[in-house]
């Protein structure tokens, strides 16, 4: 992994996807325990955010490589 902004951005997006998945699980578990609709809504929002970021990450990975071909993942 190089020290470029491209690599750091992809790492950040991957970390955000992991966070989104974790918050999704947290939201469902919290809803099961407390029946709090707000927690479930936050969890579902993060699941949607994670999916959007996943698609974005895969697309931007290729596009940024064209801009900085010397950078490694």
């Amino acid at each position: 992994m190089s020290l470029s902004l491209r690599s750091f951005h992809l790492f950040f997006i991957a970390a955000s996807v992991l966070l989104a998945a974790w918050v999704g699980v947290w939201g469902v578990q919290s809803w099961q325990a407390t029946r709090s609709g707000g927690d479930l809504a936050v969890g579902l929002l993060f699941v949607a955010l994670g999916l959007v970021l996943l698609v974005y990450g895969l697309r931007v990975r290729k596009k940024l490589r064209e801009l900085a071909p010397d950078d490694e993942d």
Binding site: L3, L5, F8, H9, F12, A15, S16, W22
Partner: peptide, 20 residues
């Protein structure tokens, strides 16, 4: 701008840990 972007990403990454 790339260097400023690296710093900005770090600040964002800290929040990704702070939030949960």
């Amino acid at each position: 701008v790339e260097v400023a972007g690296l710093y900005w990403h770090f600040v964002d990454l800290v929040w990704i840990f702070l939030f949960p």
